[in-house]
Write a protein that binds this DNA or RNA. Sequence first.
DNA 1: GTCTATATAACGATAGAC
DNA 2: GTCTATCGTTATATAGAC
Lengths: 201, 201
Amino acid sequence: MTLKKETEEQIFLAAQRVFQKKGFAGARMQEIADEADINKSMLHYYYRSKEKLFLEVFQSSVKKIFPQLVEILSSGDDLETKVKRVVDFYYNTFKKHPTLPSFVIHEMNQHPNRFKEFINSLDVEVPSQFAEQLKSDIEAGRIMPMKPAHFLINIVSLCLMPVIARNMVQTLFSMDDDEFENFLEERKELVPKIIFSGVKR
Amino acid sequence: MTLKKETEEQIFLAAQRVFQKKGFAGARMQEIADEADINKSMLHYYYRSKEKLFLEVFQSSVKKIFPQLVEILSSGDDLETKVKRVVDFYYNTFKKHPTLPSFVIHEMNQHPNRFKEFINSLDVEVPSQFAEQLKSDIEAGRIMPMKPAHFLINIVSLCLMPVIARNMVQTLFSMDDDEFENFLEERKELVPKIIFSGVKR
DNA sequence: GTCTATATAACGATAGAC
DNA sequence: GTCTATCGTTATATAGAC
């Protein structure tokens, strides 16, 4: 008997890497076992099935993206600070887990209803105070008029898309890995500027 | 003998639907055959293997996204017109093919090198004239200062992300399908406004 | 708990009749 | 060109020894 907790954790971490890279359909239990350096039977011993192992990884991945976002939006900060915190949070998270967002999106699109149920079970909701805060910044001319949904989707789009489509960006603009890292760093400053670009003159 | 061309075309269209929805690893030859209402053996008769059928679908999908983009950027239009045309083009394309962008991104991430080679074989390149055009609009204060790569990625991000993450948007903001369609319509106007929001005051 | 061996099912692909 | 039947492989999952 090695330590039970360690083995289970090893499997989970390996599964996370493989699922996030290959997706559920593309992942192989053998590959996860190899990645964890653990016998393939152990995967079933601890998680019963590929499906159950996947679900744990998927739900844990979703939790990395949404609750933190809502937590920042619910804070007492002013809007500009919130936006900067969201941008920072996303770029730091995806630096550690580059394939996390495309994984969540791909699997969410495979099972939309399962995803909806899980999100609802987390009750992550955009705080009602947020809409008023946005309205006041719009009236002050700091942000161009738009609904809260557009505002949030804009931030998320500008942060996530370059990470998801990294290969596209590097190919089209002939960037090597260092240049791409630098590109992302530049966006940390650029994205909040765009979001707070005020009304068109 | 039914018409050869029609059968081959039927298979391709069915494969397009299934691959774009499920991805290569998640797609089943039997499902493509059912979707095309054609015997499974015919898939191999016309396309030899799943891999070859997939490649045709993937390459055709990539061609739907990039060459048109470059064509618009290379035109004689002023920058604001170009942006509006790009936004219109993407929203119209993805209205017809909602799963196209997430499919291309997912498969591109599975085989980055294959993707790069194919893109290079198309020689889709951002026209050199474009950087100068952007510079002149920046100097005129119509756009906040940034490199061409940021400018283009911003447009693509704001257009593609809501389509790719449709289920996320609809879940978080409790939109039904009609409300979501309306949301996209609103963005057709909003995105160019954001892009041309000028310098921060 | 961990391993080897194996059951079982699914899937891509082909052979061969028509 | 189109069909049925089937081969060969691979993948998930389990049985059973240790």
